[in-house]
Design a protein around this nucleic acid. Sequence first.
DNA 1: CTAACTGCAAACCTTTTGCATTGAC
DNA 2: GTCAATGCAAAAGGTTTGCAGTTAG
Lengths: 156, 156
Amino acid sequence: MPVARTGARVSEELRSRGVRLTAQRRLVVDLLERATRHLDAEAVYRLAHHKDPSIHRATVYRTLNTLKKHGLVDELDLMHVRGTRHYYEVRPSVLHIHLICTACGKVQEPAGRFWEGLKRRVRSQTGFRPEVVRLEMGGVCVDCQDRPPRPPGVRP
Amino acid sequence: MPVARTGARVSEELRSRGVRLTAQRRLVVDLLERATRHLDAEAVYRLAHHKDPSIHRATVYRTLNTLKKHGLVDELDLMHVRGTRHYYEVRPSVLHIHLICTACGKVQEPAGRFWEGLKRRVRSQTGFRPEVVRLEMGGVCVDCQDRPPRPPGVRP
DNA sequence: CTAACTGCAAACCTTTTGCATTGAC
DNA sequence: GTCAATGCAAAAGGTTTGCAGTTAG
């Protein structure tokens, strides 16, 4: 979702791992690659269903799980600021973190070498071999720090 | 759950915020403070119900939400290694991270100054004011790196 | 005394699963 | 042709909610 992504990377990765490339999977992968915001399973389903009304919710869930299992997408929950659902993003080549504003719901994704270093640090300090990293922080974004606190309930 | 915790801290904090200190809340807080492993809502309920059979699941959920809202407990999902549920821990004074082994399910919690620095770094680099930090990594713990990969399904 | 909290039961929402059928390789 | 993947419908979690009765402050 954040940095630009090389088009067919995911599909090729799947193919090379012997996962069958069905029309439905292609569609889901395509949607995730083009997404400009974080999509939960239902959102993926709605978008997919719009393009191919025959696709079933269960297929979307199964596909997301497949992609996750193969490390091609990461699952987030954005600190549950928007509820219990899970969000998905194609795993980027450079690690980034998620800052979720509890006031306006905005999600920022600063990327950088520093976060990359976390993995190495854990490995050398504990021996643990990290494969998936999830760093999320809830708090107040710059804009909302200026804004007077708005009454809870109404959110953009 | 990780570092030792000052007994009445949470209760006092609640009291000072004008949240009514009912027997049920005291019980839940007490259980969380004494916990030696990560508890999900159902586990909290079972333990609570054992001590006070009249307590209701809904009350446990409501209490956990109250505590979370006031920043007294943190919610984790431990990378969903054990399913979709959420785990709760009393917010420790010193930030720690969670390393979840995808092979054996073990959770490690290295604490330290370094992780504390993440908050400051985000703040100074982006202006975002972090309140809750969640850093979880899925991967393989030292023990399981030596062990031959065991057939999936059977877990300790 | 009164607003806040609880127990209860039902609803809700998200995700998973068994089965017959379809389709990728 | 074969085995994996899909659509479908039903179930399984996990969590929330409206309401009437209870209780902390």
